[in-house]
Amino acid sequence: MKQDTTASAFNEASLTNVHADLSAMIKRWRRYLETERRMSQHTLIAYGHDLGSFLRFLSIYKGEMITTALLESLQVREFRAFLAARRADGLSAASTARTLSSVRNLYRYLARAESIENDAIDAVQAPKVPHRIPRPLTEEATKSAIETLPELVTDDWVAARNVAVISLLYGCGLRISEALALSGDDRPRGDTMRIIGKRGKERVVPVLPVVQDAIETYTQQCPFALKPDGPLFVGKRGGRLNPRIIQSAMQDVRAALALPETATPHALRHSFATHLLSRGGDLRTIQELLGHSDLKATQVYTEVDSARIRDVYDQAFKRN
């Protein structure tokens, strides 16, 4: 299902007022991203939508069929006009920057694989994206969230499932996509678990006893037979659990505990890293546990910890 959705996003982008030769190149680019770059289905869909917006803009802006020759002839001003149109449509700076990144990726592929080049795209500056640090929950808020989850649903097995998923996000630092991609055969049977992350990168994470217990409770209460090659976490009809269900569960927790809007499933992964760092964990180890390919992505948590210390200091010494 996901692959069909991804393919349709690219097909829609590639078949609208686009010459057949270019359409075929775009499809080859998609296969390259999926098979060689091993991008996630979520990223592929985003790239497809970004490309679709770019091609639709060109079709209207230039008033002609989009060909490889047209892509080669575009000037800086025309790329800037596209970005301005995206901002006018209400896209944030971050989303606009991602759209430009998608278009650049296509041009890099065309230059390398199809001998179609345009240096103008490299001269276009992406909009500045404000530097933001992750917003983790406090240890107290995380504990309260996990304790509150079972109170917000009526089915015991659903409550156990939600607790197991959230425990994996916080206790092991998993992405929600990684947790929900687990199969029945992936469930921990010892104190470690093998995780397949972004672009097929494999890592081994330790599994705390409390997380093992949460998963065991769920598997015992689940009314469906969890097959070794089937999903570990299932919905009420027995199919693979949709991430929206967990996002909705966290939304209910936010309302119940008056937590900020930043208290999302992904914030639990941030909380895992931040709390581990504050307890003396080293960056390299945290990097490996999170599956970050670049240490810079992990170093942001040092900013989180410093900000937390400053807040504590300000609260302790603020003047009346």
Rank of each mutant, 00 (worst) to 15 (best):
T5V: 10
P243D: 00
Q247A: 05
T217G: 01
T274I: 00
A307T: 15
W29R: 04
T43Q: 09
I26K: 05
L232H: 11
L257C: 03
Q75A: 07
L241C: 01
A69G: 10
G280W: 02
M1G: 02
E139R: 14
S40I: 00
L106D: 04
R269W: 15
L137F: 08
R254N: 06
V163N: 12
S95L: 02
A256G: 01
Q3Y: 10
T154I: 03
Q220R: 15
L232K: 00
G173A: 10
Y47M: 15
H49V: 01
P243H: 08
A164G: 14
V158R: 13
I26W: 10
K201S: 07
T262K: 06
A123Y: 02
S293A: 15
L55W: 12
H270M: 08
D155Y: 04
T192K: 10
L208C: 00
L257D: 03
E288T: 09
A81N: 12
R135Y: 06
V129Q: 07
R38I: 02
G173I: 12
Y109G: 03
S278Q: 14
H270C: 00
L55Y: 12
L295V: 15
N162I: 05
G184H: 11
A113V: 04
T16E: 08
A263M: 00
Y32W: 07
N11K: 11
E140S: 11
Y313P: 10
Y61C: 07
F57E: 09
E151V: 14
D4M: 07
V211R: 06
V211P: 03
R31E: 02
A46L: 09
V205A: 06
E34W: 11
M39V: 01
A24N: 03
Y301G: 08
Q212T: 13
K143W: 10
S53Y: 10
E34R: 12
E151I: 04
G239L: 12
I146W: 05
S59G: 05
A81I: 05
E36D: 09
Y313V: 11
F79A: 02
V124W: 13
A263R: 03
L110Y: 06
S101G: 13
L283T: 09
H275G: 07
Y301P: 10
R104S: 08
T298I: 05
A69F: 06
R187A: 15
E202L: 08
L174W: 07
V205M: 11
